[in-house]
Simulated assay, not measured.
Amino acid sequence: MTHHIQKAIKEGPILLDGAMGTELSKKGLATNNDLWSALALITSPEEIYAVHKSYFDAGAKIAITNTYQANLPAFEKHGIDKKDGKILIKKAVALARQARDESNQEGFVAGSIGPYGAFLADGSEYTGAYHLSRAEYQAFHQPRLDALLEAGVDLIACETMPNFEEIKALCALIHRTSPSILYWVSFSLKDSHTLCDGTPLKKAITALAQESQIIAIGANCIEASLVDDAIAEFKAASHLPIVIYPNSGESYDPISKTWQTNATAFNLADLATKWVKSGVQLIGGCCRTSPDEIKTIAQNLEKLKAFETAIKKD
């Protein structure tokens, strides 16, 4: 499967899915809590499957599991022991795999690992303002990583990562746990040149470019206005494939745990095409994006591919 993923990205662009929590909210499920969309693993797993299936049907080639907020300490706060917590994480993988297999197309399942800041449920994934030791970071991430690997994910997605020390600890943990699994790292950025914890983006890129299992590097839940300059940073500091999946442009309120409407509108599908032309190999959507947008991106990418093919023939 490793070879297939590398081949797909090389032949790219490859389309990711979009928001999970947003779609679950549309279905009437509660996400304004410390488990966020992971609560549906307990209450409504069939709805998670339905969201994954909608993205595959829209043209996505990679589903990201609903495990961003699914970590054992968070589950324990809700009375779920470690054994059952790992079962829920594995269920999340099974739901994504089922949707992939029933979509009648080749696709991949990426196991989502969110930052420690997501567990804090106070918006820390957008600040990186927390400090643990290397061993503490690894102890936090190990059970979820183990469950994802045991459940058979095709690759790992380290998402919305704001804290450089945590990122380094997580990369080392992945390599120690499974020296063959591929993964991407997408940062949470303060601006186009800086991680949320203040680390220069160039420094983070340079450090991660040395990791042999990293298949792509980029940013997610990023504002569209920051993407162009961020892409330039990624291209200048590394030859790794670039992964970008922005949010809708709305702002997150960590108190109410809801997204607040922003008057600044943009067309994600059009921007996605532009970003692919500038060198992004993995493209998708994050919070507040939808299957409709992913479908339009898929259609635009098909037109782009057809155009490029025609140019080569000429």
Rank of each mutant, 00 (worst) to 15 (best):
R144N: 00
K168A: 11
L170H: 11
R134G: 06
Y126V: 08
A151M: 02
V153I: 14
M161I: 12
C158H: 11
V109Q: 00
S124K: 13
N163C: 09
G117P: 05
A139W: 04
I174W: 01
I167A: 13
L148W: 03
Y130N: 09
S112Q: 05
D154K: 04
H131N: 15
L145F: 11
G117T: 09
Q138F: 13
A151G: 02
E165V: 14
H175L: 13
S180P: 02
G107I: 02
A135E: 15
S180E: 14
Y130D: 11
E166A: 10
G111Q: 10
E106P: 03
Y130M: 10
I167P: 08
H141L: 07
I181D: 04
A121M: 03
G152D: 07
G114S: 08
C158D: 13
L149T: 08
A110Y: 10
P162W: 01
L170G: 08
L173G: 07
P179N: 11
M161P: 11
W184K: 03
L145P: 02
G107E: 01
I174K: 02
K168D: 12
A169H: 12
R144M: 01
Q138C: 10
E125C: 10
L173V: 15
I113G: 07
L148R: 09
F164R: 09
D122Q: 14
V185Q: 05
D154L: 04
V153P: 06
P143D: 09
I181Y: 05
L120S: 01
L132P: 08
D122L: 03
I167W: 09
L145E: 00
H131Y: 08
L149W: 05
L170A: 11
P179I: 02
A110M: 13
Y116S: 04
T127D: 02
I167R: 05
L173K: 08
L170W: 12
E125H: 11
E106C: 01
R134D: 15
A110E: 10
W184Q: 03
E150S: 14
I181Q: 01
L148S: 04
E159L: 10
F164C: 06
G111S: 06
W184L: 10
G123N: 00
A110D: 03
H141V: 05
F140W: 07
F119V: 07
P115Y: 05
S133F: 04
L148M: 06
L173W: 08
M161C: 12
L149G: 06
E125R: 12
R176M: 14
E106D: 11
E106I: 13
L149P: 03
L155P: 00
P179Q: 04
G123W: 08
A147D: 04
F108E: 01
N163E: 05
Q142N: 11
Q142K: 15
Y183E: 00
E150G: 05
F119A: 10
H141R: 14
L132T: 05
Y183G: 00
R144F: 01
H141D: 13
Y130C: 03
N163M: 02
S178Y: 03
I181N: 02
P179T: 09
S124A: 13
A121I: 12
E136M: 07
A151I: 02
E165D: 14
R144Y: 00
I156F: 02
F108M: 10
W184F: 13
A110W: 07
S180Y: 13
Y183D: 01
Q142M: 11
V109T: 07
D146E: 12
R134Q: 15
A151K: 06
I113D: 06
A169F: 12
